[in-house]
């Protein structure tokens, strides 16, 4: 029941945005900017770049609002725009996000001991930011943005299985980082 009324409010605001209503646009921005900024932050790992991405994404979203059909939620539609803009931004920095030699599916020692008793959000979050670009993007898309491996593959231009193996490597690396002595505190 709650989701329905939420959707209704949204679609009303979106309709107003389509007509170029500035206040409606601000309402949408208020509603989504923080979440979208964090999506952008996790991918770019750079505050000012994340802001540029957010700006670009919102402008493009307002401009292309007429292409948004209510088949998906507005949030996930907007998130796709943000993710694509952010990935384009870091692609400008480096040519390959996932290096060619890591695209083959290797056997990763799956059995890393995951001791969640010592996990804290802040610790995990900081460790994610320490990952190299390729790992960080795949891992945050999968863990935090709710993308499945097929979607990640599509967005990054890699295969689904590469995304899977990349995620395993990233997770292993993340657990290693958290075990580092300076992270123990």
């Amino acid at each position: 029941m709650e989701t329905i009324s939420y959707q209704d409010v949204n679609s009303h605001v979106i309709d107003k945005c389509r007509e170029g209503d500035n206040r409606a646009q601000y309402e949408l921005y208020k509603l989504y900017s923080k979440a979208m900024f964090n999506v952008s932050m996790r991918i770019t790992n750079d505050y000012s770049e994340a802001e540029d991405v957010l700006q670009e994404a919102f402008i493009s979203a307002f401009k292309n609002l007429h292409t948004y059909k209510a088949e998906a939620s507005f949030g996930s539609w907007l998130k796709k725009i943000v993710v694509n803009a952010a990935i384009n931004a870091i692609r400008k920095r480096r040519s390959e996000l996932v290096p060619m030699d890591e695209r083959t599916i290797g056997d990763i020692a799956e059995e890393t001991y995951e001791d969640d008793s010592e996990w804290k959000v802040e610790k995990v979050r900081k460790a994610i930011m320490k990952l190299p670009d390729g790992y960080r993007v795949v891992l945050s898309l999968y863990l935090l943005e709710g993308f499945d491996h097929a979607e990640i593959g599509e967005v990054l231009g890699i295969t689904e299985s590469t995304s899977k193996s990349q995620y395993s490597r990233a997770k292993k690396k993340l657990l290693d980082i958290m075990k580092e002595p300076q992270f123990a505190a």
């Binding site: 170029g20 646009q25 921005y29 900024f37 700006q55 402008i59």
Partner: peptide
Amino acid sequence: FDVFEPRPELWQQICQESQAPRKEA
């Protein structure tokens, strides 16, 4: 996990830039 927030001024920039093509709406 969502700990960051954009600067409040960012909206002004977005507003200004999306203002120009607003008529195309």
